[in-house]
């Protein structure tokens, strides 16, 4: 029998999977640019960044697998769970769009991820704290790189500005989910393992607003829709878009077709 690791599971494991799924899904989306970047140098830059995210996901999956037991490995967690088992943010599974949307999403998530990892350095789960400490220099660079591009494109030509405005309009409805704690997040916060994402919101808003001002992009960050009242989707509860189903179908096809295959 294939271990599926379906919920209900311990809040700590669900939290680790949430963090890992975020990194894996965004890393996979960005990796779709490999060989298709607008410039050779940017193609390499985004592929490097994707591999950083994949590396973070692996460490988190390995840590989760150790806790879950029952034959779970990083591979079964990544390749044998269905979309409804995934706990990633909807924001990260949306199609890559154009270069502007990919960059803007990366920037918005990097600002969040940096604050999150910084807080997780103090986790009572020492392995999670170590993973966070290792990820911080990577995410710091992702943030810097993506921020430069957001400003460059937002404050660039008429076309690049229009495209960034349109990307912002596409992503804005999905920003509220970043800061709406799921039940498992409340539980791990009480136990000192995780952090309540709503506590990161004011600092995130401050930083993002500064960047968007520099990029000449206007957006309302004061009233963000929560997942349930706006879209009916909630990534942390496994209620995903069809885009994730298609992403996983492509990503998992080899392991599902040839279970246990190695090369």
């Amino acid at each position: 029998m294939i271990p599926r690791h379906l919920p209900p599971m311990e809040a700590r494991h669900e939290y680790l999977l949430h963090l890992a799924d975020n990194a894996l899904v965004l890393g996979h989306r960005n990796s779709e640019w490999c060989g298709h970047g607008p410039e050779l140098e940017q193609d390499i830059a985004l592929t490097n960044l994707s591999l950083d995210l994949l590396g973070q996901a692996r460490l988190l999956y390995q840590h989760a697998a150790n806790g879950i037991g029952e034959g779970a490995t990083e591979d079964t967690l990544a390749f044998l769970r269905d979309a409804s088992d995934y706990r990633n943010l909807i924001l990260l599974e949306l199609p890559r769009g154009d270069w502007g949307l990919t960059i803007l999403r990366q920037y918005l998530f990097s600002e969040f991820s940096l604050l999150q990892y910084q807080a997780l350095q103090g986790s009572t789960d020492t392995q999670l704290a170590a993973i966070a400490a290792k990820a911080i220099p990577e995410v710091t660079y992702h943030r810097r790189w993506a921020r430069d591009w957001v400003v460059r494109l937002g404050d660039g030509t008429e076309e690049s500005h229009t495209r960034m405005e349109s990307a912002l309009a596409t992503l804005q409805p999905h920003l509220g989910e970043l800061f709406s704690p799921a039940d498992f997040e409340r539980t791990v916060t009480e136990r000192g393992i995780g952090i309540d994402p709503s506590t990161l919101r004011s600092e995130w808003t401050l930083r993002v607003r500064q960047t968007l001002d520099e990029a000449d992009l206007a957006v309302d960050l004061s009233s963000l829709a929560t997942p349930s009242n706006h879209t009916g989707m909630d990534g942390k509860l496994g209620r995903h878009t069809e885009d994730l189903v298609r992403l996983l179908a492509e990503m998992q096809t080899l392991q599902r077709t040839y279970p246990g295959n190695e090369w």
Binding site: E41, A45, D148
Partner: peptide, 11 residues
Amino acid sequence: ARMAVENARDV
């Protein structure tokens, strides 16, 4: 120049 330094870092 800033982009060149970043590109050099990545390449």
